[in-house]
């Protein structure tokens, strides 16, 4: 496993301050080409020497895809843009270039892939947006769902009993337990689906608010409320999802 000296070069370039982006193009790490020092204003490739430019460290995933911070995303647009940007940045197209260009292409590609992966999945997309809008997730930590915790503990006890009984072969106790767990599973899966529906409602609320805010200025309080509500749904969903997974794993 060699050291990636190329990555160090890139880190170095990332030290420079980000420039302001035009609406059409991505912000690059510097306002001057790292190679020929000519002015670059958001082009991926330098207009003078055609060398690839490193993406700005301040670039967020939404901006990377030139998307506003909305939660409903046109998946076809996302894929199309991902493919286009991949054709610009992928290391395959820099294999005969010098080490610095290779390193920049590698860094830009890794960032692009992370951005696509995150935005493609609605849950990851929402979690990312919350982090972006509110700083650390903990800052808007939601109320602990005490009833859900009780449910987790209770289910785990039942699962424990089931795991102890199962190796002893079929019995009426085991069968009853299996039925109970089966019912629990259906109930939890239904709940998970409901959570996803309410999350979708929050997506719509957020998007509408963002559009209103763009016209009327700040709506910080309202935004925080939606973010907090979304965070709560996401957290609760995690507990429910874990329970479903444990159930599936134990019961096969």
């Amino acid at each position: 496993m060699p050291e990636a000296s190329e990555a160090e070069i890139m880190e170095h370039q990332h030290q420079a301050q980000a420039t302001t982006a035009t609406s059409r193009e991505l912000p690059m790490a510097r306002s001057m080409c790292w190679h020929c020092q000519s002015e670059v204003t958001g082009e991926y490739l330098c207009g003078q020497c055609v060398k690839v430019q490193p993406l700005s460290r301040d670039l967020d995933y939404f901006a990377c895809f030139q998307l506003p911070r909305l939660l409903n995303i046109d998946e076809q647009y996302l894929e199309k843009t991902f493919y286009e940007l991949s054709r610009t940045f992928h290391p395959d197209f820099y294999s005969t270039k010098d080490e610095s260009e290779k390193a920049i292409s590698l860094g830009n590609s890794a960032f692009l892939n992370a951005a696509y992966r995150t935005l493609k999945d609605p849950i990851q997309r929402a979690e990312y947006l919350i982090r972006l809008e509110a700083g650390a997730v903990k800052d808007i930590r939601s109320n602990p769902p005490a009833d859900l915790f009780e449910e987790v503990l209770e289910l785990q006890e039942t699962l424990e009993t089931f795991r102890q009984l199962a190796p002893k072969g079929p019995s009426s106790d085991l069968e009853a337990l299996r039925k109970k767990l089966q019912a629990e599973r259906e109930h939890l899966e239904k709940r998970q689906a409901e959570m996803e529906t309410s999350l979708q409602h929050k997506f719509n609320e957020w998007d509408q608010l963002q559009e209103r805010a763009a016209l009327s200025g700040q709506a910080r309080e309202e935004k925080n409320t939606i973010l907090r509500e979304m965070q709560e749904i996401l957290s609760n969903r995690t507990y429910v999802r874990n329970m479903v997974n444990d159930l599936l794993e134990t019961m096969g």
């Binding site: 939601s142 602990p144 005490a146 995690t238």
Partner: peptide
């Protein structure tokens, strides 16, 4: 005390 970690879904009593 019953608490949970929303990041990973762990629950502790």
């Amino acid at each position: 005390g019953i608490v949970g970690a929303p990041e990973c879904g762990d629950v502790m009593k």
